[in-house]
């Protein structure tokens, strides 16, 4: 079962190498229900990755906080309840696909035949069946990202954080992966936060699209996506889908105006 994520008046300020401060994010508040899928849409450099890192417990906020089921993200992360897929595949080049998927468990010292079978099944479900013993450099970027996704799912996390996981892929691959991912998520009622530049992807994946302003990213508006939980490729040919795409596009005009000012 998914956990709820509450982002509360969060701000992050970096100190860059030359000593200047960069306000990267916020203040921003977002509440994600347990089992809800939310897409974060915002211009480049607005602090999306920063927000995700805080939610994953990898970065301390400057002010405000993120709680996952009422806890600091560090705690569920240590329990393996947060799965993260980064912008780049970030696989260990010296480990096979299967070993990469099992990495989170191996670090915590719990690999047995049962989880190995689970990993093999996961890989099959994500379209990497038969590649268990290949090395990452023998896979295409799309396949590598599938592997990273399987790694994020291996511990059956309650929260899935996705940082533009498919940005490097072409349109077709991207669509296919989105559906594969939805299929993977559906029975788990996982809570998912998807960061993306892509309006189509945001609508396809989420129950709600949150639009962010330019840096420092703040919530500009949000659009509910009432397309139901089950999504299949036919959805992409439906009018309802495009209505949502259009309303998100309209919402996007607002941050553009804000950038111009």
């Amino acid at each position: 079962m998914g956990a709820e994520i509450s982002v509360d008046e969060l701000t992050v300020r970096y100190r860059s190498k030359n000593g200047n401060f960069v306000d990267a994010l916020g203040p921003i508040s977002i509440h994600v229900e347990a089992g809800e899928k939310v897409a974060l849409l915002g211009p480049s450099g607005c602090g999306k990755t920063t927000l995700l890192k805080v939610a994953a417990g990898l970065l301390k906020p400057t002010s405000g906080r993120v709680l996952i089921d009422g806890e600091e993200p560090d705690l569920p992360r240590r329990r393996g309840e947060i799965g993260v897929v980064f912008q780049k595949p970030t696989l260990l080049p010296w480990r096979s696909v299967l070993e990469n998927v099992l990495l989170p468990l191996r670090i915590r010292g719990r690999t047995d035949d049962r989880v190995k079978r689970k990993a093999v099944n996961l890989l099959r479900a994500i379209g990497l069946g038969g590649f268990e013993h290949s090395y990452p450099n023998e896979l295409s970027i799309g396949m590598q990202q599938r592997c990273a996704l399987a790694r994020a799912m291996i511990q059956s996390p309650r929260v899935l954080l996705l940082d533009e996981p498919f940005a490097a892929l072409d349109e077709m691959n991207r669509e296919m992966l989105n559906f594969d991912m939805l299929r993977l998520c559906e029975p788990t009622h996982i809570t998912a936060l998807l960061i993306t530049h892509n309006v189509y992807e945001a609508v396809l994946f989420s129950d709600r699209v949150v639009v962010l302003s330019a840096r420092p990213g703040q919530k500009v508006t949000e659009v509910r996506v009432d397309l139901g939980p089950a999504r299949d490729p036919r959805l992409l040919e439906s009018e309802r889908y495009y209505e949502h795409v259009i309303s998100v596009r309209k919402a996007l005009r607002i941050p553009r105006l804000m950038m111009a000012s």
Partner: peptide, 8 residues
């Protein structure tokens, strides 16, 4: 970073 995020 990935390994640290996995608790290594």
């Amino acid at each position: 970073d990935l390994l640290k995020s996995l608790g290594a």
